[in-house]
Every structure is written in C-alpha cells, then in structure tokens.
Amino acid sequence: MRLRPVGPHALLAEVGDARSALGLALWARTAGLGVLEVVPAAETVLFDGVDDPDRLRERLAGWSGEPPAVSRGPVEVPVTYDGDDLDFVADRWGTDVAGVVERHTATGFVSSFCGFAPGFAYLAGLDEQWAVPRLDTPRSRVPVGAVALAGSWCGVYPTASPGGWRVIGRTDVALWDATRAEPALLAPGTPVRFVRA
C-alpha cells in the first residue's frame, strides 16, 4: 500500500485494484480510525477529515490485506431486459440476447464503490473478458433504473442523467431514497444478484 498525502487532513491509499480498495474500506469502517470519510474507488481509498495523519499511517500498517468480507445474502434486483444496447453487448459477447441475460443473471456482483451520483454503485463481478466499451457520445438522458455496463462494471442509474454506459435493461427498484435510514440500496460491500422481472 502506498500512502499519498492530500493536503493537511487527508491520505490517499493506493492499493492497486477495486477488490483491495473495498476490502480496506470495509475494514477501515469497523476499525475506529477516527476519520470523517472513507471513500473507496477503483484503485484507491481516500481517508478524509483526518486529525492525525501520522497516527492513521500507523493504523493502516496494521491492515492485513484481507479481501472484502461479505456478511449477508445478496440484494435481488429484478430487471426487464429491453435496453437499447442489448444487441451491441450480445454481439461483443458472441452470443444472443438470451445469452446476455443468462450471463448477467448468473453473475454474482458486489458493490465496490459509489460515485457519479448519489447511490450509483460500481458493481464488480463480470470477468474482464466481457468488458464492453462506453458509448463514443454519451446519451443526453438515461432513464432512472437503467441497468448498464461499462468496461467490466455494471451499474444502475439511481436518477435520470446523461450517461455513456451500455444499457441492457431497467429496474423499478429504488436505488436511492434520501428518506431511508440506508439511503443507498447498493452501498459499498453489498452483494447483488440480478433476476428477470
């Protein structure tokens, strides 16, 4: 792990990949590190609101590098597979639409980190060989609930927004609700299964 200072009150931990970042972030949340924010991302974890960066460095040295512990059953997300990019994805994967649905519903995903919008989770689980490129020109409006792929990530749009991911379907599940005790359905560390609606 490499630690880079980010101003006087934050440290950025480089751990190389999203799985390690999630593992470190989940450990950090339970370890009582005395920081305000623990923000996992694709290859890093940001620790912000740090009173004593030297002390945090010592504590982080105590992380064993264990993989993320998934402590509960998956959240099921019912999907209607009718997205505009289904044929494109099927073509890339060398299969048909039914083959795309089969692989997507058979994959065990886990939320690695959130970003882009409140409750937008980057879901890991697809093998790198099934990575798909983003749209060259993002759509100006992707509807709420759109289930989409980019690279080997899967994501579900919590609100309507512009977006460049390949849309394969849609769900009625509320990904984000600021009035819930847990506003994000797919907070980092949450296991996810997609099922046919």
Partner: peptide, 9 residues
C-alpha cells in the same frame, strides 16, 4: 453532510 462521500453525496 460530511461522512456520505462513499455513497456519492
């Protein structure tokens, strides 16, 4: 509302 950056807030 600090403390919610990991949820994208």
């Amino acid at each position: 509302r600090p403390g919610l950056a990991h949820l994208g807030v």
